[in-house]
Design a protein around this nucleic acid. Structure first.
Lengths: 347, 347
DNA sequence: ATTTGGCACTCGATCACCTAGAGTGCTAAT
DNA sequence: ATTAGCACTCTAGGTGATCGAGTGCCAAAT
């Protein structure tokens, strides 16, 4: 009887929708009314019992109504959800935020704020420092006091990194300029990961004449490229405090765990990385994320692309009971818009 | 009878100390024991009634003990507190964090983390973007796509700021190098605030020959210096989630207000700025800060100096009931150490 | 003049107890 | 297959009693 199954599905849909809206367990009486079907509460009860057997809903205790289980949410999202098209005005407003030609860092920060403000959830944006994809553009050396040199590295996409390094001996301004020019001529347009290799290779067969330059170059590479550049520096989180408004996270202990996860970042980055492959929006419900701290949360993420290449992921995190029908399309377009804005910066 | 007054003071001291340690109202019985004085609870009660008249303590309700009032804390801190010298080992460990020659930004971030980790409170570090004090060192132009130029500004103290600007027309790499050299020769070592003025002045009497360069220079100044550089970008906060462990902040609503204050930042910056003048550690108790969100918190801050000049402030924020005798000296030495580490970078 | 013991009193916390209401599962009737 | 009816369960919320901690004040003691 596919008819019965269909009805059960329909009831599940209503139930999840109402529960997301109200936040309270639904009883058979209310569900009977809300469904619009001309069925008595008793019938609904039977159907609900079936849903419970299937593990899609459960009741917190004997005399409360039913709430969706994690699996229930899953089914709802995968096959029952009807996403709302974005409010046209919202779209326009959001587009306005992505002013072309802002530098990437700012752009990403704005996006993070935008996400959390519009959704009233906590937002996440990952900017993978994928050295492999970064292309070297220019290097500058600025002599500071003593043997300290400020190295400024610019990549094709307009990102700037800088770092102070200690050298074996002092260098004159002229030497620094000379060295920088040498670098820039030789390595301009080469992928950073390549630069490392080439440098190391060159170092083998260096002539006496290039000795001094290479000496500096060696120190550069070691300090600038090889030494770890603070992993975890690449996750932006905003709007965490929005989560305090949700009664289901009212337990301070839970909240504490969640906030600690935000500062630890490592796990979150890993989680978001998992969705890099996925073409579009990906949703982790409760324990699906694999992290205990997120067990009462859902994560909605989407990768964003620059020139057809996935370069990062963004999304929001909030209680499992969140308005997916609005959140999903919003995360989706934000990813697209950020990708677009970033694309227009490159060469 | 200064004798009685002295005793009352002493009792206040014990009371505050015990309350800070235990977090529970103190009754006359316990206080009689804890004080070590050979007095009966009844006597203590009389003394406590006096303290209450003076507005130094109050009882939450009739049959609870007494807790310090804001004024009580004030008196305690101003004249009764005996600060604990820092654990020698802690000092050494902390000193280890300030490795000489790290770039300023990193240094400040480390400090913020250090503060919150050691004190288990939320930490604040202000890095005032005091243009007046920044000295221009070097400028670089990197041409991006179309008319977009990446401008990199380096100041004497090793800070690097960068910005993408749109120009009226495209410039060739040679032009950019030329312009940069011109800039660097002319303005190296001049205070940023001066650069603005000189530039504007020069622009008046520019010769035809310099026209093009000045055209670029004009755009530079406008976009780089004049347009506001995101005020508020200069406050670092860490360890907010530490605050969730304090029962007195257990009220989600209060917590929410506090966290919102952290993200708003404006008020906090203003608060910290107020302590810039003070020579050493300054303490705001509860409402003294003037901000409603902080009414149950205390703020302990100290300015830090580079080359004898106050350049910023740092400190912690936590519940009024915090172990001042440890926090105060710790904030103090942290400020000194950060100042020291920053001083050693400049020329 | 201070200190103290005694005593009545107040208030919060805890517990047992009750009730109302919401919701269920099951059975028998339709 | 649906429904009405009914007994049952469980929570939320309220009441009242008790306990213990702590106070304030008075009169006695030092």
């Amino acid at each position: 009887m596919p008819d019965l199954l269909r009805r059960a599905e329909f009831l599940l849909k209503i139930l999840v929708e109402r529960y997301i809206a109200e936040g309270q367990p639904l009883g058979s009486r209310t569900l009977a009314k809300q469904s619009g079907l001309d069925l008595s509460p008793a019938t609904i009860r039977n159907a609900m019992a079936d849903l419970e057997d299937m593990g899609l809903v459960k009741s917190p205790h004997t005399s409360a109504g039913r709430v969706p289980t994690q699996l229930g949410y899953r089914v709802f999202i995968d096959s029952l959800l009807t996403v709302q098209p974005l409010n046209a005005e919202t779209i326009r407003q959001v587009e306005g935020e992505f002013v072309v030609g802002t530098d990437p860092q700012k752009l990403v920060e704005t996006t993070s704020l935008l996400l959390s403000e519009v959704t009233k959830l906590a937002s996440l944006v990952v900017v993978p420092r994928r050295e492999e994809q970064l292309v070297f553009r220019q290097l500058d050396f600025v002599g500071l006091s003593g043997c300290r040199i400020l190295v400024i590295l610019v990549t094709e996409d307009g990102q700037v990194q800088n770092r102070i390094i200690d050298t074996e001996r002092g260098y004159s301004p002229a030497e620094l300029v000379h060295a920088a020019n040498y670098f820039n001529d030789k390595y301009g347009g080469v992928a950073i990961s390549e630069v490392k290799h080439i440098l190391l290779a060159d170092m083998q067969r260096t002539t006496e004449e290039m000795q001094r330059m290479m000496e500096l170059a060696l120190e550069m590479t070691r300090k600038m490229f090889v030494e770890p550049t603070d992993e975890g520096d690449d996750l932006l989180v905003s709007g965490e405090s929005n989560l305090m408004d949700f009664p289901e996270l009212g337990d301070i202990q839970k909240l504490r765990k969640l906030f600690d996860a935000f500062t630890a970042k490592r796990d979150l980055v890993h989680l978001l990385d998992r969705s890099m492959r996925a073409g579009g929006v990906k949703i982790f419900i409760g324990r699906e994320s694999g992290y205990e701290a997120l067990k009462d949360c859902s994560v909605v993420v989407a990768p964003y692309m620059v020139d057809g290449q996935v370069v990062g992921t963004l999304g929001v995190i909030g209680p499992t009971r969140m308005p997916y029908e609005h959140i999903i399309p919003f995360v989706d377009v934000t990813a697209k818009l950020l990708g677009g804005a970033l694309s227009s910066i490159g060469r």
